[in-house]
């Protein structure tokens, strides 16, 4: 491993100060499950690693106020998975977060880290997109917010400025009558990276949203506002046509996890199955 300085500041202002000073030479450490791998392979060679775990403003935890749930940047995924509010209000996020790595990984890895790593296959991102997550960003100049789809710019690229860090992720509690589910395809049943991932939700107004992962430079959101997909009585062929239009927006690549053709085909299969379970759940709910 390449040598680097290690700093563990206690105040957020110190973090933004260090970021301003070192820019891309500084890397933030929350769970470290992507960072340490990169350090070991040499893919990441920072001059300074800034540990966020002692920053007073960034204590791990989830808090809700005014119908919004905030998940702080240092909250490990295992806490997100276990949290009763997440399970009740954002069940697809709980499902997605539970697929990241292994138990050991989820005890360290954070939700914020999963989005900041900006992997096209990030497991939590499709669910966060479907739930309209907002990223809270702090910098020297203060705080700003971005919808997640504007935060993610490309593989390993985010909208964070030189001196900025993500302090929390916020989700507005969905209205009554919203149902959602997450699904993905992997090469094996044990710990694996997604070949493709899909999150699907249907709201009370009959709008169906899909977010697709691992099939484009970033996970992306699409919606059917016609109500066809949410309609349990709609003709399956018509539904398939709408679904094919939505999944057709994907731009998968071929790699060791799967070919472009397989990914494209599986996007349709998994989306169709998820939609069915969401629409069924809605019918029963």
């Amino acid at each position: 491993m390449h040598g680097f300085a290690f700093v563990a500041p206690t105040a957020q202002a110190e973090v933004t100060g260090l970021l301003e000073e070192h820019g891309s030479e500084a890397r933030l450490l929350a769970g470290g499950t992507d960072l340490v791998v990169g350090l070991r392979t040499g893919a990441i060679r920072p001059r300074v690693v800034v540990d966020l775990k002692r920053v007073a403003e960034l204590r791990p935890g989830l808090s809700d106020a005014g119908g919004r749930l905030a998940i702080s940047a240092t909250t490990p995924l295992s806490r997100v998975v276990r949290d009763g509010r997440v399970r009740q209000w954002f069940p697809a996020l709980a499902e997605a977060a539970a697929t990241v790595g292994s138990i050991q990984i989820r005890n360290r890895a954070t939700l914020a880290g999963n989005i900041c790593n900006a992997s096209p296959a990030a497991d939590t991102v499709p669910a966060l997109l479907v739930y309209g997550a907002e990223v809270v960003i702090a910098g020297r100049a203060g705080e700003r917010r971005l919808p997640l789809d504007r935060f993610l710019l490309g593989p390993r690229r985010t909208a964070l400025g030189r001196d900025e860090l993500v302090t929390s992720i916020e989700l507005a509690r969905p209205g009554a009558g919203t149902f959602a589910a997450f699904g993905r395809l992997t090469r094996r049943r044990g710990v694996d990276l997604a070949t493709i991932s899909v999150c699907c939700s249907v709201d009370a107004a009959g709008v169906t949203r899909f977010a697709f992962g691992a099939v484009a430079p970033t996970p992306f959101l699409v919606a059917d506002e016609s109500g066809v997909l949410a309609d349990p009585d709609a003709d399956p062929e018509t539904k398939d046509r709408v679904l094919a239009e939505l999944t057709g927006l994907a731009r998968p690549i071929s790699d060791v996890r799967g070919s472009r053709e397989y990914r494209q085909a599986m996007l349709m299969v998994v989306s169709r199955r998820l939609l069915r379970s969401v629409v069924d759940g809605r019918g029963k709910g």
């Binding site: 094996r188 049943r189 710990v191 694996d192």
Partner: peptide, 11 residues
């Protein structure tokens, strides 16, 4: 280990 897969207990 990331992309060379061997069976886990779940497999």
């Amino acid at each position: 280990a990331l992309d060379y897969r061997i069976p886990t207990t779940k497999d």
